[in-house]
Design a protein around this nucleic acid. Structure first.
Length: 315
DNA sequence: AGCGCAGCGGAACAGGTTGG
DNA sequence: CCAACCTGTTCCGCTGCGCT
């Protein structure tokens, strides 16, 4: 018995006829008949009851066919795991910093995809080192990393060393994200908060935001919020909006947020009177990799969201 | 490279049932 | 009765594989 015999039996059950099944299998009826007989002899049961109208599974035959189909399904699944994909389905993987404007661009991008095709997308919100690692060691082709401008040389040297190409996306100063009913928003109608006023508020920080390893240990120490003592670390992005929404004495440093997202979560975005270091989001990908049409579409959506934020006067 | 073996598939044929 | 359709059997050729 081999997989071919199982395939034969399943096809015969499907058509209810050895002759028709043989046609579908591009073989002669006698050979299919013979193959099934051999199979039946080998396992010691009658799989099909022969009639003048065709064939029908016996009770035990039906049970056997159930197992046969499961085995064939499992085999197909195994093959598809290793077989190179030749279909024109949508495959896209990217690691990004936790940024609302990027998430917004991503949802716009997904909404434009052809849903008739097979879609397999990985969208991972993570830190810069992980984004780099995902390209080097996993099947990610794209990543967006975020760093302060003053560290750019170090990042470029590292990316070059790892054979990664980079393309700047956006250079921006952080903004303060607060609930629209936060005293910070109400007491500063001009939208500019005094840095000293933040003393009484709790900062919400992403748990793995600080850049680990290498020579960047100073990054988090020199970051805008290092000297603040009141902090809540969140490790899941949904939590940040819950906290900001429910606790009026919290704030968060963020990249510029699209208007629709601010309205959706009843938030406002404020400036701070202290000139902070400029941050940069940079697209990275392996050297020698040419951006696909899909990649370009995603980048175009990023640009569109960025422009909309500027048009809405939010940056 | 040559040989033998096993497996697969095609051609031809046999036999049974059904319906006009 | 006969054509049409079904399954089963036998024979033969081709192909791939392992062994020498």
């Amino acid at each position: 018995m081999n997989l071919l015999h199982l395939k034969y039996a399943v096809e015969i059950e499907k058509t209810g006829s050895i002759t028709k099944a043989a046609n579908n299998l591009f073989m002669g009826q006698p050979n299919l008949s013979k193959a099934i007989k051999e199979l039946e002899n080998e396992i010691g049961i009658t799989i099909f009851r022969r009639t003048t109208k065709g064939v029908a599974p016996t009770e035990k035959g039906g049970e056997f066919l159930g197992y046969a189909k499961a085995v064939l399904d499992q085999f197909d699944e195994m093959v598809s795991l290793y077989k190179p994909k030749v279909d024109d389905g949508v495959r896209f993987s990217i690691s990004v910093p936790r940024a609302t404007y990027i998430t917004k661009a991503f949802s716009n991008f997904v909404s434009l995809l052809d849903t008739d095709k097979e879609i397999s997308i990985n969208f991972k919100e993570t830190n810069s080192m992980d984004a780099i690692n995902n390209i080097l060691n996993f099947d990610f082709k794209l990543g967006i990393i975020r760093y302060q401008n003053i560290h750019e040389k170090q990042y470029f040297a590292m990316l070059d060393g790892k054979n990664l190409k980079y393309r700047p996306l956006w250079e921006f100063e952080y903004r303060l994200l607060v609930n629209k009913d936060s005293p910070l928003a109400k007491e500063n109608p001009d939208g500019i908060v005094k840095y000293s006023d933040l003393e009484d508020y709790i900062e919400i920080v992403h748990g793995d935001l600080s850049v680990p390893s290498l020579s960047f240990s100073k990054v988090s120490r020199s970051s805008v919020s290092e000297h603040r003592k009141k902090r809540i670390y969140v490790y899941e992005r949904g939590s940040q909006f819950d906290l900001l929404g429910n606790l009026y004495n919290t704030y968060m440093w963020v990249s510029p947020v699209p208007k629709s997202c601010l309205e959706q979560h009843a938030m406002v975005q404020l400036k701070c009177d202290v000139p902070y270091k400029v941050n940069k989001d940079v697209l990275i990908f392996p050297k020698g990799y040419s951006l696909s049409k899909l990649d370009e579409q995603f980048i175009a959506e990023l640009e569109r969201v960025k422009e909309k934020i500027k048009m809405d006067g939010l940056y």
